[in-house]
Design a protein around this nucleic acid. Structure first.
Lengths: 244, 244
DNA sequence: GAGTGGTCTAGACCACCCC
DNA sequence: GGGTGGTCTAGACCACTCT
């Protein structure tokens, strides 16, 4: 494979390889959890050196899209894997020890998208959404009340029963049942006062200060797929973030 | 340079180069904002190939410790540079446009470290700290009230007058005046109710929900140097975070 | 031992910056 | 034109995993 000579702005070969690899991921040629071909195989398939494939894979691995395992191979990252199960959950107990969360789902509705969620999901006017709620509990204590809105066209026939039955994380569910892999997310955090509804679900006094977390989650190609607003009790727990 | 044969667990060469580079940074051989020697020069100094130096520099650059500029050279990252001025500030207006913040400093005290700040800074019993407060305003509106605590041994003779006179960001000040470069930080976010003091400084009603941000900031070698607690108004502003 | 990713080298050439 | 980082190659060898 030669670098195309006519490109106005220079694009390195390894970026083109990244595009090709991503294409195979989107198309489902390699599924979450599976191994992709070895570096040497890919090098010969794309007619480039192993080093160039390596650089492309390196970047995809640093974006948590692929996962390398020395001596075994390179795998498609999956929210099903234990280490990735709650990859985007930043709320942790002050003590540091990790507790497995429990989910309770309710309030599923389908309607026309509108307002902030519709804008976040870049929906066309009149496009449908699926909305539902979830209470997440740690050690039996309700800590997070989520309002979740999905682009309905990507999750046909989703039901609460399926969600409850599934058991694992919501993103693991999207991936396993609908083939939608969440790649990255953006969050906006604010402090708010608990209204009556939130207070009831989270078992705190109305007016209690809560952490409000708005999130947009993206799949391949930076396509927004899920909007959510979480209200979180931060007594004994905190949202942890590392800056670098 | 040969790989040492006796090491029980394998350490790649480029990691040793990273250590050597970091050593030169700590010692002040290359100062913030300055260029370090070229890759070929470093390769011959360390008796390794350019590729190995490259990999070491790549990692330091991804940690924002060095900064590459194609065609010019590799530079020591600095909080003085415009793009890094408020590198760790994640609070942004909902509109997205960036407003230059203004700082007001007050309440400086020196005393024996105690409690949470002392633990965070891993101080020995009886070691001294410098504590001061700061109100950060955006567009004339006070938004963040910070309580900042420093390991006193590293900031001899620090005064409020110096801080005020300096003008730029606090980390830029630490770096320029005391040669302490902040490399990374950890933050814990919670929602709290404004007490009387915070309400007064931030011009909100007592009891208003505020975002509380605890931070530990580290210099080279993961040494904790600064602890702070920020209380932040999130009306028209939010703490933005990107998950990947 | 065979296969995979990980390291290291040496050399060629390209894109960018500045003189 | 000369220097710097950036890309790409080809090949050797090492560390890790599984059979």
């Amino acid at each position: 494979m030669k670098k195309s000579a006519a490109t106005p702005s220079f694009r390195p070969l390894y970026e083109q390889i990244k595009v090709l690899l991503t294409r195979s991921l989107v198309s489902g040629e390699w599924k979450p959890g599976e191994a992709i071909p070895s570096e040497l195989e890919l090098a010969s398939r794309f007619r480039v050196s192993q080093g160039t494939v390596r650089k492309a894979i390196d970047e995809l691995a640093s974006e948590h899209i692929l996962m390398r395992r020395q001596g075994k191979g390179t795998y498609v990252a999956s929210h099903n894997e234990p280490s990735y199960q709650y990859r985007f959950l930043r709320v942790i107990p002050d003590s540091g020890e990790k507790v497995a969360p429990r989910n309770l789902f309710f309030g599923l509705e389908r309607h026309k998208g509108a307002g902030e969620p519709a804008r976040a999901l870049r929906l066309k006017a009149g496009a449908s959404v699926i909305a539902f709620k979830r209470v997440m509990s740690f050690g039996g204590r309700p800590l997070i009340l989520d309002d979740i809105v999905l682009d309905a066209s990507l999750f046909p026939g989703l039901t609460l029963a399926e969600l409850e039955e599934f058991g694992g994380s919501v993103y693991s569910f999207y991936e396993t049942v609908f083939g939608i892999r969440m790649i990255r997310a953006e969050e906006w955090l604010r402090a708010v006062s608990a209204d009556g509804v939130a207070a009831t679900h989270l078992k705190v006094a109305p007016g209690t200060a809560l952490l409000s977390v708005d999130r947009i989650a993206f799949t391949y190609g930076d396509k927004p797929v899920e909007w959510r607003r979480g209200l979180c009790v931060t007594d004994g727990y905190a949202y942890f973030n590392e800056l670098s």
